[in-house]
Every structure is written in structure tokens, then in C-alpha cells.
């Protein structure tokens, strides 16, 4: 696997190396959460939940995966 195929992105503030062609759905699934219960932001743009499987990350992307937690 050539070194150039790796990309450096940020997911929820942490740097992460991913392969070229990785989708947002794969990233979410790797976190162990139900994709139906999260909202994904890519570079501060909310990603349509329908398009998680077809959206591939690019180098230096900043991804936020957000869900609802307890609160008042």
C-alpha cells in the first residue's frame, strides 16, 4: 500500500489516518454508533444523512460526528 494513499483528517478533534476513498459512513461505523442516530458535519457543513455512504473524505477534512446525549 503506497504511503501516498493515506490521508490525515480530524474526527471529533482527533487526528486520524484514513485510506483514500474512505466514506463518512465507514468512519461513523468505525466509531461503533448507529449512523441513523448521528449527525455528521464535514468542514462545518452538515452532511445529508442519505449521502454518508457516497461521501468520501478528502485530505485535511475536519469531521464532527455528533449525537444527542442527556441534557436539560
Amino acid at each position: 500500500m503506497p504511503e501516498s494513499s493515506d490521508m490525515l483528517i480530524q474526527v471529533n478533534g482527533k487526528e486520524q489516518k484514513v485510506l483514500q476513498g474512505t466514506t463518512l459512513l465507514q468512519i461513523v461505523q468505525a466509531m461503533g454508533v448507529d449512523p441513523a442516530r448521528v449527525v455528521v458535519e464535514r468542514n462545518l457543513e452538515i452532511v445529508d444523512p442519505e449521502k454518508l455512504s457516497e461521501t468520501r473524505v478528502a485530505d485535511s477534512d475536519r469531521i464532527e460526528v455528533i449525537h444527542f446525549v442527556g441534557g436539560g
Binding site: M31, V33, R37, E64, V65, I66, H67, F68, G70
Partner: peptide
């Protein structure tokens, strides 16, 4: 019912369930 929003942490299940 109110909820808050946070980044998904490893293993965090969220509240929606």
C-alpha cells in the same frame, strides 16, 4: 423531553435509544 448534543465518544451510546 430535552436533550443536549455532543461529539460521539468511543463507546458512547447517546440518548436516543
Amino acid at each position: 423531553i430535552t436533550v443536549a448534543m455532543r461529539r460521539v465518544d468511543d463507546g458512547g451510546k447517546g440518548i436516543m435509544g
